[in-house]
């Protein structure tokens, strides 16, 4: 490391800024008090123990996990061939098609939510359920899964696939024996990111869920009750820890075995 202490100090302050507020949740979740206030009263895990006795939390958790698992698989399965088309084929209209698939990034989620609400309720007459939430989540996840897969497919040489074809492999054979294993770290990380995005997504779930809650929707319903603050802090901390572990896992898997010249390609 060269150069001024100024930058280093700034970097440390920056990290403190992005982590500081979020770390208040685990801090107060183990504080032996019903309020999130200083001075700290003492260490306790009772707020965590209370969580396991609450059926609504466990049900919401189950719903979220089921949605996130289904969504991440579907988004990745759909994004994979699209990523191959983006990286391995040249054709007119590719850029607009790609732009179309990246669109969910720039449509505010509330607009996406009300648009889905309108078509589901007013045009199709389908009742809201976890299925409608899942449909919205697949589209939210798609740009992220696609980007991860595209960057992974660009990370290795396409001439390997050409060689495989020249040696007489059928396209599907080339895919399963060459592309798939080489892209596997990207696929796993796409699955994990899709899972996290869906698991943490709130706005679309809030608008499109029927009688059943996802975990963020349940959490939101509890935020307004001061009485349930300790439980909310404990539940929130668990969610934060789980997402952090999954993200770090996704990044570590994606980094394995790739030496890329692409800066920032992590």
């Amino acid at each position: 490391m060269t150069g001024g202490w100024g930058f280093k100090t700034y970097a440390i302050l920056f990290i403190a800024f992005i982590y500081g507020p979020v770390l208040m949740l685990p801090l107060f979740s183990v504080n032996d008090s019903n309020f999130a206030t200083f001075p700290l009263a003492g260490f306790t895990l009772r707020h965590y123990a209370d969580l396991w006795t609450q059926r609504p939390i466990l049900e919401a958790l189950g719903n979220s996990v089921r949605i996130a698992a289904g969504v991440s698989v579907l988004a990745t399965v759909v994004a994979m061939p699209a990523a191959i088309a983006v990286t391995r084929f040249r054709f007119a209209g590719k850029a607009p098609a790609l732009a179309f698939m990246m669109l969910p990034l720039v449509v505010p989620s509330i607009v996406m939510a009300v648009a889905l609400l309108v078509i589901v309720l007013r045009f199709l007459g389908i009742p809201l359920s976890l299925w409608t939430v899942a449909a919205g989540h697949v589209v939210v996840c798609l740009p992220f899964c696609l980007s991860v897969l595209v960057s992974r497919l660009e990370g290795f040489d396409a001439s390997l696939e050409e060689a495989s074809r020249d040696l007489g492999c059928a396209p599907m054979q080339t895919f399963w024996r060459l592309t798939f294993p080489l892209a596997l770290p990207g696929i796993i990380s796409s699955l994990l990111l899709g899972f996290i995005i869906s698991f943490d997504e709130f706005v679309i779930a809030f608008f499109l869920t029927g009688t059943e809650n996802t975990l963020p929707v349940y959490l939101y319903s509890q935020l307004r009750f001061p009485n349930s603050l300790p439980g909310t802090l404990a539940l929130g901390s668990l969610i934060l820890i789980a997402s952090t572990l999954l993200v770090v896992l996704a990044e570590v898997i994606r980094r394995r075995g790739v030496t890329s010249d692409n800066p920032g390609d992590i």
Binding site: P81, A82, A85, K94, P104, V138
Partner: peptide
Amino acid sequence: GYGLMSPALLLMVAVLALP
């Protein structure tokens, strides 16, 4: 290329463009 992209494009049409 379009064949490979079609599942994703169909999904986008059904869940984003049509809504």
